[in-house]
């Protein structure tokens, strides 16, 4: 609807049938495609507006993870002396923080998004899914900025990273899918229960300590393989271990029974998180679509 006759791909004016909707409504991908420009504009707006009227602007996307790295690296690496798979503790922490911050920001911003967009939702029709989706896309800009700092640190401290580099987009896709799945569910819940906005920061905080501080190898060593895979049910653990491996570990060698061999890729850990991610996305979209018809009435 609402596309002009000048749009070549739509020839006939559509007939829209408005009916009471019950239960599960399938996602109308054609509708999403028709409105794709709005997704572009919403994303563009989020990026453009985020650092308006700040002195430092996009520098914040870098300063926050670097600041966190200094604090966490000092506490856990230098003071508590937790193992870091033989890596520099600051590098170890930052390699976890960069993907984590993308996930955490996308999650917390999208869970507040529908309420924040209430002026739009009650006044105009558009695919509501674009609200959390736009945020998950817009945050990629911040991620890339923070990631470039991580790269510079790696270049300075360890030299060029290896070809496994190309796996990183796939790992980030897992992080994005998970953020979108949880973001859709939580944003829809937040429309009805404003408790969500208090719960999310708390969860994000705890979750961060569960994902980026302890190396997975330590868990396998101490509690065995079962614990290791259970740890992987948290998809972010796989994503973070995977990114560390892609960037850092595959260029290191460990001594095992007198033989030097390359550090194993955490395939199992990464695989353990995938079903969880898919499940989260399916549930998130299902719940979102089920609640969608009520958004304008109760937001």
């Amino acid at each position: 609807m609402a596309e002009s006759a000048t749009v070549p791909q739509i020839s006939d004016p559509p007939t829209i049938r408005i009916r009471p909707s019950r239960g599960w409504i399938a996602i109308d991908f054609r509708e999403l495609w028709r409105w794709r420009e709005l997704l572009y504009f919403l994303t563009w707006r989020d990026v453009k507006v985020k650092y308006k009227q700040t002195l430092l602007g996009f520098a914040w996307a870098v300063l926050v993870p670097v600041g966190n790295m200094v604090v966490l690296g000092t506490i856990f690496g230098k003071v508590a002396k937790l193992p870091t798979d033989g890596l520099d503790p600051y590098l170890f922490i930052l390699a976890g923080l960069v993907p984590w911050q993308y996930f955490a920001n996308s999650l917390s911003m999208s869970s507040n998004s529908l309420v924040g967009y209430s002026h739009l939702i009650t006044k105009i029709y558009f695919p509501r899914l674009f609200v959390p989706l736009g945020i998950c896309i817009a945050n990629i800009v911040d991620f890339l900025l923070a990631f470039s700092v991580l790269l510079v640190m790696i270049l300075v401290m360890m030299g060029l990273p290896a070809a496994t580099f190309v796996l990183i987009p796939f790992l980030m896709l897992i992080a994005m899918t998970l953020a979108l799945g949880m973001g859709t569910a939580l944003s829809a819940m937040n429309v009805k229960y404003r408790d969500i906005k208090f719960v999310v920061p708390f969860i994000v905080q705890i979750w961060m300590y569960c994902s980026i501080i302890v190396p997975a190898s330590l868990i396998r060593e101490k509690w065995g393989s079962l614990a290791y895979y259970l740890y992987g049910v948290n998809p972010m653990a796989g994503v973070i271990e995977g990114i560390r491996w892609c960037l850092l570990h595959n260029r290191m060698f460990v001594e095992k029974e007198g033989v030097h061999s390359a550090v194993e890729a955490p395939w199992g850990l990464m695989a353990a998180g995938v079903p969880m991610t898919v499940l989260t996305l399916v549930f998130g979209l299902y719940y979102f679509k089920r609640m969608e018809k009520m958004f304008a009435d109760i937001v």
């Binding site: 007939t15 049938r17 408005i18 105009i124 018809k293 304008a296």
Partner: peptide, 21 residues
């Protein structure tokens, strides 16, 4: 309801053509 911001509880509406609200 006609602008599809909210859904009806009963009945139906047909709209032929592009609609802007």
């Amino acid at each position: 309801i006609l602008s599809r911001i909210t859904t009806p509880t009963k009945g139906e509406a047909l709209i032929r053509g592009r609609l802007a609200s």
